[in-house]
């Protein structure tokens, strides 16, 4: 009797443990499925075009010629614009939250940053179309033209829709993740480092600039890279404001198209064959790049990855 009971208990443990392990394996499987599905489905295009796929500039479903360079260009440029705008802002915000803000203000601002992270990208896009695009067209672009118009970056007619607007919108969207990851990075800086600096007669800014920020450079870089990963793959908001014209132009005022926005525009219309394969290869490209960015940063930078999921919460004040 007891023996039997023991056996059932053992069996129960085995079954439960097996079930949880199976569920855990599903995450492994998921990663494998991504890789396999994307590769097999884009194989035809990979074989057919080889490197021409990423260097070609013609994208023509009618004659089945696919070159992705304009989309890669659009993706990279819009993401870089986003980084240029978002990085200083996010690091400043994170430094403010971790080193300057009183507890109460810190909580409130963190709450708002979390809200910013919770807004769906289609809402960003909607706001982008009806608020940001007109604002950029009527204020930002004329201003840039008047002040920095000698740069090729800021030449051409102010459409509103285009690379610049997409970059601004992306910057707003990746600000929360860079901010919260930078916060984590600063959180890892020992209080003793700050006190050492202050005790030597440094001002608060000197302490932030020379003792706190440099202490965990790799953490901050990781935050930026993960922000970049987000920007590269962001779809809806960009699709709605970038203009969706596959151009390679030095001007940020011109419309463009990203890999993700092309997918959003064309994938539902695809019937199969080489076209589908080429589109999937674009997805594979996006997958590969973001996968590598994530793997590399997480492998080399010990991150408190909790915040990546957006489940941020209040933490100890450091200053």
């Amino acid at each position: 009797m007891t023996h039997e009971k023991l056996e059932t208990a053992k069996l129960g443990e085995l079954a439960f443990r097996g079930a949880t392990a199976a569920a855990a394996s599903s995450i492994l499987a998921l990663a494998a499925v991504y890789a396999v599905q994307m590769t097999t489905n884009s194989w035809e295009s990979i074989v057919r075009f080889g490197w021409d796929f990423v260097t070609g500039t013609a994208w023509d479903p009618v004659s089945d010629v696919y070159g992705a360079l304009p989309f890669i260009w659009g993706t990279v440029v819009s993401s870089l614009v986003a980084l240029v705008l978002a990085v200083p802002l996010s690091i400043g915000l994170a430094a403010y939250l971790s080193e300057v803000a009183p507890v109460r203000i810190r909580r409130i601002v963190e709450f708002f940053v979390e809200l910013l992270a919770a807004i769906p990208s289609v809402v960003y896009g909607l706001w982008g179309i009806f608020v940001l695009v007109p604002f950029v067209r009527e204020h930002v672009q004329p201003f840039l033209q008047n002040t920095l118009g000698f740069l090729p970056l800021f030449q051409g007619p102010p459409f509103g829709y285009g690379m610049l607007t997409a970059g601004i919108l992306l910057a707003i969207m990746i600000l929360p993740i860079i901010t919260s990851l930078t916060r984590e990075a600063l959180h890892a800086v020992p209080i003793a480092q700050r006190e050492a600096s202050l005790a030597l007669g440094s001002t608060r800014w000197e302490t932030i600039r020379h003792a706190v920020l440099p202490y965990n450079k790799s953490g901050i870089i990781a935050a930026i890279v993960l922000g970049l990963g987000r920007a590269l793959g962001e779809t809806m908001a960009v699709t709605m404001v970038i203009g969706n014209v596959p151009l390679i132009s030095p001007s940020l005022f011109m419309p463009g198209q990203t890999v993700a926005s092309l997918l959003a525009n064309e994938f539902a219309e695809v019937s199969g064959g080489l076209y589908l394969s080429a589109l999937t290869e674009l997805g594979l490209l996006l997958f590969g790049v973001t996968f590598i960015l994530n793997v590399v940063t997480r492998l080399f930078v010990p991150l408190v990855s909790r915040k990546v999921g957006g489940a941020a919460e209040g933490r100890r004040q450091l200053t």
């Binding site: 492994l28 994307m38 993960l226 997918l263």
Partner: peptide, 28 residues
């Protein structure tokens, strides 16, 4: 090791663009 790999991949997968997920679901 298994736990570590799964945890790592779970984090990495959260950084994969959602449009890619759409493509995979489409093909699946």
């Amino acid at each position: 090791l298994f736990g570590k790999v799964v945890r790592f991949l779970a984090d990495v997968l959260q950084g994969i663009p959602s449009i890619v997920v759409g493509i995979v679901a489409f093909t699946l």
